[in-house]
Design a protein around this nucleic acid. Structure first.
Length: 706
RNA sequence: GGAGCUGUAGCUCAGUUGGUUAGAGCGCUUCAUUGACAUUGAAGAGGUCACAGGUUCGAAUCCUGUCAGCUCCACCA
């Protein structure tokens, strides 16, 4: 054996061997409860980031259960990542001087698919580099035909159960990208904009957006505001740049009497708060800004101007007419920007598909309350309940091409909607018209993701769903507890009548060495694969679980990586010592049962160390079962280095004989086994040197009989 | 504005139902050594556990408040 452990010579070779031998494929044993995890599918198109390296937790669990003899499945997948991917692709088009408007929908979809297929291998190769024992034969993609079918079926079932409705809602619309965004995708920024005090008949109100005036269908004041109480419920006559108009005054609690003059113009079609006020008082929606960002016919002579331009011209005109009382130039407020292109988000009304969430949320709350699903660490239960107890209906339409197209066709005659699986319906079921067009929208990526546990298993190998569902563990970052985990529980329960997983295990974020969140804009991204290259996958894996409690964020720590790499070398050198002291004729016999080993042991000290190893083995087993992987890692590190190597090896050194050698060797192999889930490569390499032809990955867990 | 998390050694973090002298890694100091390993070994310094109260025989741990950092949600015309 070399003096120094070289991970580069070992890791790829070992992984290939594991994969080739099919060790990642579970053996289905009817009647035996399996262990299963569905990998949270990384973006098919993007390289892994450090958060993905945290999936090492899943690998540790799978390897542990595999060694315990449980049929263990870890199913990989790739996510089409909707808008994210389409955006990256459009950047490429831009570089070629093209845009998505040069292609029709199918062409564009095909091109993106090709683009993704080309990049997809990267992510999979990286998962292999990290040593993840994924069953690649069961790999699924969110746009696989069979998955699309499952997702569409779910939509239809929801529609038939009256959980789906169509409604005009304000969306965060980016007129530049031509798509709406979820609230999450809007970035708020502090900006200084003029606040205009404009005259509305007898009232004066403050607004930053005078151009939306044409869409005003009400004026609101606080219901208890003494100044304006007399106007509530009445219509007032106002002078506008386009002539006189009448408008209703309503009283609404959303109005802050302290702000401005305490009077608000209500534009339900262009402001989220106003939309709510409008709904409460039954005000009309009047859209005056189009999806192209330009003023429409309601704006009279300002039609065709971009909103921003119209604002300037309207204010000039209003000044001339004496309708502007004053302008506050120092006003700062927060405005929503497109997180992709940075342009101002325009709230616009648009017909969308919505899912009624309240009926789905209740069973999901119960599942956790009744312990059918356990959340680790427990502190995250609060977030889970908070989200579900205040849930709002879910807008599942997205105005992009790269996703699963919504299987809904609208009749051009009677406006009836037909939901159809497979081919387009031939005629309208209401009026028999053949004039049907499919909705242009695709599903929100999270809509298909919410079905991932059963969608993957139902479309996988024959019998997988029956055997592996519900899955044992869903392990992911706590940051997507609401957006993904909670929705999987809701939709999973709704479709399958079973929880999609029994345990939710949540890890924290991996931040940069200074504790700051890694992000492209900050330029502090660390590529996990470079770190693997430098320190070895074992060291990276160990460093990620060592010294950080589950669910807590951690700063990437080079000293910790270094310590972990030294640990792999320490293991290597213990192995080397044992090999060098091999006593002639002696076998590397492994006593997997420490009880048997103790019976065979002759020396008192040896017997004591067997007990210590036995205690450690029990503790580590329990720690892994409770997802306290940091405890397992810390105990193994301390014991192997500072107990076993520093004390026991030094003790045996001077009194080595055949029997002591057997004990030393056996204890070491037990330690190697206990460490294998966390550090699979170096342990497998050592094991095979001691036991040619045998494989640690499928060997028995200490004290376990298969 | 609402909610949550975090605050422990110079740095990064553990501390598992409250229970002796609060731990680890890195760094630092002293010494040893080419003997499995200098990617080593031995010894050591270093902490009013953010702050202020409270509960308790006993608090880093439980409660209240304050301060600081982070995250999520909502969002002001």
């Amino acid at each position: 054996m070399d003096k120094v452990y070289n991970h580069k010579e070992v890791e790829d070779k070992i992984y290939e061997m594991w994969e080739e031998k099919g060790f990642f494929l579970p053996e289905v044993k009817k009647g035996k409860k399996p262990f299963s995890i569905i990998l949270p599918p990384p973006n098919a198109n993007a390289p892994l980031h450090f958060g993905h390296a945290m999936y090492v937790i899943e690998d540790i669990l799978v390897r542990f259960h595999r060694m315990k003899g449980t049929p263990s499945l870890w199913l990989p997948g790739a996510d089409n990542a909707g808008f994210e991917t389409q955006f990256v692709f459009e950047k490429h088009l831009q570089e070629e001087g093209k845009s998505r408007f040069d292609f029709d929908r199918d062409e564009l979809f095909g091109m993106i698919m090709e683009f993704v297929e080309k990049n997809r291998g990267g992510m999979e190769r990286q998962l292999r580099k990290l040593g993840f024992s994924l069953d690649w034969s069961r790999m699924k993609f969110t746009l696989d035909e069979d998955v699309v079918k499952v997702v569409s079926q779910t939509f239809k079932k929801m529609y038939d159960d009256s959980l789906i409705y169509r409604a005009e809602r304000l969306v965060n619309y980016c007129t530049f990208d031509g798509t709406s965004f979820s609230d999450l995708e809007v970035v708020y920024q502090e900006r200084q904009n003029p606040l205009y005090y404009i005259k509305y008949g007898p009232l004066v109100l403050a607004t930053t957006r005078p151009e939306t005036k044409f869409g005003d269908t009400g004026v609101a004041v606080h219901p208890t505001d003494a100044r304006y109480k007399k106007y509530i419920g009445k219509e007032i006559e106002i002078e506008t740049v386009l002539g006189k108009a009448k408008i209703k005054v309503v009283g609404d609690e959303a109005v802050d009497p302290e702000f401005g003059t305490g009077v608000v113009k209500v534009t339900p079609a262009h402001d989220f708060t106003d939309f709510e006020i409008g709904k409460r008082h039954d005000l009309e929606m009047k859209q005056v800004i189009g999806f192209d960002g330009k003023m429409n016919h309601f704006a009279g002579k300002f039609e065709g101007l971009y909103a921003k331009q119209a604002r300037k011209e309207i204010i000039e005109e209003m000044k001339k007419k004496g309708l502007v009382e004053k302008i506050d130039d120092k006003y700062t407020h927060r405005i929503g920007l497109c997180y992709k292109c940075g342009n101002v988000i325009e709230p616009l009304p648009r017909e969308q598909w919505f899912v009624k969430m309240a009926p789905l949320a209740k069973p999901a709350i119960d599942a956790v309350k009744k312990g059918k699903i356990k959340i680790y660490p427990k502190k995250f239960e609060k977030l889970y309940f908070q989200f579900l107890e205040n849930i709002r209906d879910w807008n599942i339409s997205r105005q992009i091409v790269w996703g699963i197209r919504i299987p809904a066709w609208q009749c051009g005659e009677c406006r009836n909607w037909e939901i159809e699986l497979g081919d387009a319906p031939s005629k309208c079921s209401k009026c028999s018209s053949k004039n049907l067009t499919q909705d242009q929208d695709t599903f929100d990526t999270w809509f298909s993701s919410s079905q991932w546990p059963f969608a993957t298993l139902q479309t996988g190998k024959q019998g997988d769903y029956e055997y592996f569902y519900p899955t044992t563990v869903m392990e992911t970052g706590y940051d997507i507890l609401r957006w993904w985990v909670a929705r999987m529980v809701m939709v999973g329960l709704y479709i399958t009548k079973k929880v999609p997983f029994e345990n939710v295990v949540l890890h924290g974020l991996v931040n940069d060495p200074l504790g700051k969140k890694m992000s492209k804009s900050k330029g502090n991204i660390v590529n996990p694969l470079e770190i693997v290259e430098q320190y070895g996958a074992d060291a990276v894996r160990f460093a990620l679980v060592f010294g950080t409690a589950l669910g807590n964020d951690q700063a990437l720590s080079y000293p910790k990586l270094d310590a972990s790499r030294k640990f792999t070398n320490k293991l290597w050198n213990i192995a080397r010592f044992i090999e060098m002291n091999k006593i002639h004729n002696s076998q590397f016999t492994i006593h997997n049962s420490l009880k048997d080993l103790k019976t065979a042991a002759e020396n008192k000290n040896d017997k004591e160390w067997i007990d210590k190893a036995d205690k450690l083995s029990r503790e580590v087993t329990e720690d892994i079962e409770k997802y306290n992987l940091n405890y397992a890692a810390e105990k193994l590190y301390e014991f192997i280095w500072h107990q076993f190597a520093d004390i026991y090896v030094e003790d045996v050194k001077n009194r080595i004989n055949e029997n002591s050698y057997l004990v030393l060797n056996s204890i070491f192999l037990v330690l190697i086994k206990l460490l294998h889930p966390i550090m699979p490569f170096v342990t497998e390499e050592i094991y095979q040197r001691f036991n040619p032809g045998e494989f640690l990955i499928i060997s028995d867990w200490p004290n376990e009989q298969k």
